[in-house]
């Protein structure tokens, strides 16, 4: 039984990693998928992966930090498939590694702009469309760094805590309008973003692994499952929640 048959799902940051895995999982559950990303090539690859498995998808080139592009993205999704039922606001950047006193302003601005303002802009344009339809479901990508602190990535930690707060605020505002808003808080996940860090700093592989009581990193598909579940009717009473999918990391 497919849990999202006939639905339309939007995934930002869908060119790789968690976004790509979520796009594939949405399609597997019967949704038509709109992939938005600044990276066009990766998005097109995600689209063809979905098409090869018999699903429907389109790619839209979108920089989520620019209001006019985000507005166009939502319009584009509706133009392609007629509506917008599920939005997974997942586009984000990793943290520049520098402690609070040494962080550059440029890095700060870039990280907050993509990870936090980008999520807000997406919601800003998704919500009116969902209100017009009478409902919808939003999932935002926060992080375990949205629940606890980490050394050496202050802007990233602040941005992800911000996403959790923003998620709760929006959940309250639209609870009576048929829109549910939740966040996922992944631990460290095997994505290109993390693979890049590990190839620069090989000792991080072991550090990342040991952070998780389960003794391993998460796979993008494991986050995708949580996103799809939160987006489905099975989660009809879940709103304003920050779901940790972290192999026990934040429990310690």
């Amino acid at each position: 039984m497919k849990s999202l048959e006939g639905k339309v799902a939007l995934v930002t940051g869908g060119s790789s990693g968690i976004g790509r895995a979520a796009a594939l999982a949405f399609a597997r559950e019967g949704a038509k998928v709109v992939i938005a990303d600044v990276l066009v090539e990766g998005s097109r690859e995600t689209v063809s992966m979905i098409q090869r498995s018999g699903g429907q998808a389109v790619a839209l080139e979108t920089d989520v930090t620019r209001a006019e592009q985000v507005e166009a993205m939502v319009k584009g999704a509706v133009a392609a498939y007629g509506r917008l039922d599920c939005a997974f606001n997942n586009a984000g950047v990793g943290g520049a590694r520098a402690p609070t006193a040494e962080h550059t302003e440029e890095d700060w601005d870039r990280i907050i702009r993509v990870n936090l303002k980008g999520v807000w802009l997406c919601m800003k344009y998704e919500i009116p469309q969902m209100l017009e339809q009478g409902g919808g479901v939003i999932v935002n990508t926060a992080s375990v760094a949205g629940l606890v602190g980490f050394n050496g990535t202050p802007a990233y930690v602040a941005s992800k805590h911000g996403v959790v707060g923003l998620t709760k605020a929006a959940a309250l505002e639209y609870a009576q309008s048929g829109i549910r808003v939740n966040a996922v808080c992944p631990g460290v996940i095997h994505t290109p973003m993390i693979d890049r860090t590990v190839s620069k700093l090989p000792h991080m592989a072991e550090v990342y692994r040991k952070m998780h009581p389960m003794g391993r990193l998460g796979e993008p598909e494991e986050i995708a499952e949580a996103v799809v579940w939160l987006s489905s009717d099975a989660a009809s009473f879940v709103t304003g929640h920050a779901m940790a999918v972290d192999g026990g990391l934040t429990v310690q």
Partner: peptide
């Protein structure tokens, strides 16, 4: 990959 979590359904 979910363990130790308190899933809120509220």
């Amino acid at each position: 990959f979910v363990t130790g979590h308190a899933l809120v359904v509220d």
